[in-house]
Design a protein around this nucleic acid. Structure first.
Length: 376
RNA sequence: GGGGGCGUGGUGUAGCGGCUAACAUGCGGCCCUGUCAAGGCCGAGAUCGCGGGUUCGAACCCCGUCGCUCCCG
């Protein structure tokens, strides 16, 4: 491990917005950065070469899924995730904590860990902070996540209980960790409750980890609540460490997140939406399956330099969608990933140029989250 | 020439006396945020080939008729 690994340098700030660099053993992340999600050691429907062409640098993969299939030992046998899936750049693995939340109907959680039922074959399994770290060490991502509980955001009573458990688990994760070439991030929880978020941010900050994550957002609370929680946490997290807002998000969420001090984002949205025929444009989201696009000779976004926009019309893409051709998923995924990756890059440049506020206002005033677009 | 079967939303079918006519697909639209997910939801669309009859009531029974289809000659 090189000495500069996991060093975060802040290059410029504007208000709470930050532009920086984060060094990992597999390359440097220029923040703000958006990470596409490759749950099962693949970003669905795109090859690593195509992914690289979008400008993506960081890729997230999933402990829960890879543990169940093909198994962490098998991934290790192939030299770890980078080698196995042939993504040479920085990688991050989620701890499996989110599945505790999203699959809660088949899970039993206690202070020691979580017992859960495999979605693949129904077999019973158990994760603890120690086993999650052990699995993540076998997978070998550059950034690994603490095993936490992502609780229902609005239940104060439960969040109070869950928070102390998540904090105890974080300490156990730190104890369990052995590899020096991986950075463990702690996760701030606390639902929609400012005092719990504050308590959690203070606790996570006190542990001197290489980075801090904010979890439990974009899981059903309002946008205003998400913004409020970010604002509570922003001044409390260490300034000289990267902040990672987990599972977010949409274009407007990225802008709103950066504005509130976030450096790293990940989300399934661009690839999932792509598989469901929706694409991002500077004026909002459109669904390319709509009949209105059948005769549209324009690219998805005339200002976009992605492979899909440089080569194909909306009319052709709609044809692929209607005909259920696999290439549709690939092309729309490439576009959506590049849209978010380059949005993060543009924000970074704007922060460096001290024009971020203007950029953000401009972007948010044009981008309508689910705007019906006039076809043109 | 004789005998049988079938005609129900765009398409393929279900229903065979009490239905505001069901399902699939297609069509139109919406949703999707640390992915159980090429998924989820909503909507438009047939008065049941046509005419007559039986019945309180017919897509469902009877008669006729047209069309398609199969078998025999």
């Amino acid at each position: 491990m090189k000495t500069q690994d996991f060093i975060f340098n802040l290059l410029a700030t504007q208000g709470s917005a930050r532009a920086g660099t984060f060094h990992t053993p597999h390359g440097e992340l220029l923040t703000p950065v958006f990470a596409p999600v490759g749950t099962q050691a693949t970003v669905k429907s795109v090859t690593p070469a195509q992914l690289k062409e979008t400008g993506a640098s960081l890729v997230l993969s999933n402990t829960y899924h890879l543990y169940l299939r093909p198994g962490a030992d098998l991934v290790a046998e192939f030299g770890g995730l980078h080698e196995f899936m042939r993504w040479p750049g920085p990688m991050l693995t989620d701890s499996g904590g989110f599945q505790v939340f999203s699959l809660s109907d088949s899970n039993k959680i206690d202070d020691d860990g979580v017992t859960f039922k495999s979605h693949i074959d129904g077999s019973m399994h158990r994760f603890t902070p120690e086993s999650s770290i052990a699995i993540q060490e076998k997978l070998g991502a550059d950034i690994i996540m603490a095993f936490d509980e992502c609780a229902e955001p609005n239940d104060r009573e439960y969040n109070l209980k869950s928070l102390s458990r998540t904090h105890a688990w974080l300490e156990r994760c730190i104890q369990a960790k052995t590899r020096p070439d991986q950075a463990l991030f702690g996760i701030v929880q606390g639902g929609v409750f400012p005092d719990l978020r504050e308590q959690s941010a203070r606790f996570v900050s006190s542990l001197d980890l290489p980075g801090c994550a904010i979890g439990g957002l974009s899981v059903g609370e309002t946008k205003a609540q998400m913004h409020a929680m970010l604002e509570v946490v922003d001044p409390l997290l260490p300034r000289e460490k990267p902040r990672y807002l987990m599972g977010v998000g949409s274009p407007e969420d990225l802008v709103n997140g950066v504005m509130r001090g976030v450096d790293i984002f990940d989300c399934v949205l661009p690839t999932r939406l792509a598989r469901h025929n929706a694409v991002f444009t500077p004026t909002g989201r459109i669904n390319l399956m709509n009949a209105a696009f059948a005769h549209d000779p324009q690219p998805i976004d005339s200002t976009c330099s992605c492979y899909a926009c440089q080569n194909f019309t909306r009319g052709y893409l709609r044809h692929l969608i209607v005909a259920k051709e696999l290439l549709a998923s690939t092309l729309l995924s490439i576009h959506n990933i590049q849209f978010l990756v380059s949005l993060a890059q543009r924000m970074r440049q704007a922060i460096i140029d001290q024009s971020f506020n203007t950029f953000a206002d401009e972007f948010l005033s044009h981008y309508k989250p689910s705007a019906r677009q006039e076809k043109s």
